[in-house]
Nucleic acid binder design. Structure first.
Lengths: 196, 196
DNA sequence: TTTTTGTTTAACTATTTTGTTTGACAATTT
DNA sequence: AAATTGTCAAACAAAATAGTTAAACAAAAA
């Protein structure tokens, strides 16, 4: 069986869709645009994915799984708390270079009816993380608050400047390079803000 | 001249569009959907706004202006620094009830080519705010960092949990009411995080 | 070599969405 | 009373997009 050429093209189409959605924020890309960007005939999208909707759903679920694996890797890694956070920041900013609009995409999709498929898996990770946060508060390394609020703080400080970059960069009057530099400083800023 | 009925309907259509875009995150609402939601004939949208694109642009510019006025009001108000931040938080969370997706909408629009029309006005406000932040750092009320980073922190901590609510609420496994309660606690959390 | 498979091209259909036109009608203005 | 204005309804034209089908072909597999 030819397990190769077809899988490659299918993957190419999926990756191109991801690039357009998560990478460039073009959430309304048409099948034609996706095909063009992939350098592939538009009919192939139907051939492999049957319908546009189906492709969108598959990509959405991929993104979900990616996010879950991402947090999993951090939370279940065998590291001291603070190092975990640092690891998370590194990984996040790394992925953000390729897919800055992943979260916004998820929100827009969920506003159109999509939802998560495996809540179990998530809450398992979260519970463990909340425990660790609480422990860290007892040690006095971070301010006391509901662990959920700490998590919100962490995600907010990290994701927002990435997801909202077009808006922020323009609002704050930065050039590309200036904003890039701001982002590079950001890891340390976030650590200082989270840990007292 | 009848300065009334027509202006009212034009406004109604605009408000309905805003409600769908900023309020419900339905960024792809069709003219038909907008008309239905407004309880008005679809042709009226063309009658008043000529084209769908035009309506979208007008709404976008309205949103811009709204954001500018918003920050203006806070920054140029005659209050001590910390109270300004509190005022900002109050106003933001208040508006968030009506238009939680305003920022995301702006980002999606800007990813499709829109941009700000009056950068001057913005930088005037920002410069003043940066000065105040720097001053506050000298006083030792907040950690030293580039004022831009402080601003990023502030906006991130505030906006992210609002804009990304569908994603976060689902991810964190909250019911509506639980997330609402989390948001109510949030003002104090943010203040504690920003000020040392 | 023959067959199968992945891919392209092109033509065509269906559906959705936008935009236009026209005629009617009620309310308001003149 | 007559004219104007805002609104609606219905029908239609035009464009954009999605999806289907069939014929052809090259590369890989049999």
């Amino acid at each position: 069986m030819s397990d190769k050429k077809d899988v490659a093209t299918e993957q190419l189409i999926k990756n191109t869709a991801k690039k357009l959605f998560f990478g460039e924020g073009r959430f309304n890309a048409t099948t034609q645009e996706i095909a063009d960007e992939a350098g592939v005939n538009r009919t192939l999208i139907n051939y492999y994915f049957r319908s546009r909707d189906n492709l969108f759903n598959i990509v959405f679920e991929d993104a979900q799984q990616k996010e879950i694996n991402f947090t999993d890797m951090v939370v279940f890694s065998d590291m001291p708390f603070r190092e975990k956070i640092e690891k998370y920041l590194d990984m996040y900013f790394e992925q953000a270079k390729e897919y800055p609009y992943l979260e916004i995409y998820m929100v827009t999709q969920m506003n159109q009816g999509s939802c998560f498929k495996d809540p179990e898996q998530i809450s398992r990770v979260l519970d463990k993380f909340y425990l660790e946060i609480a422990l860290e508060m007892d040690k006095g390394n971070i301010d006391k608050m509901r662990p959920e609020q700490f998590l919100l703080n962490m995600i907010s400080l990290t994701s927002f400047p990435v997801s909202m970059r077009p808006l922020l960069q323009e609002t704050m009057g930065f050039k590309k390079e200036e904003y890039d530099r701001l982002m590079e400083e950001r890891k340390q800023i976030i650590l200082n803000t989270l840990f007292k």
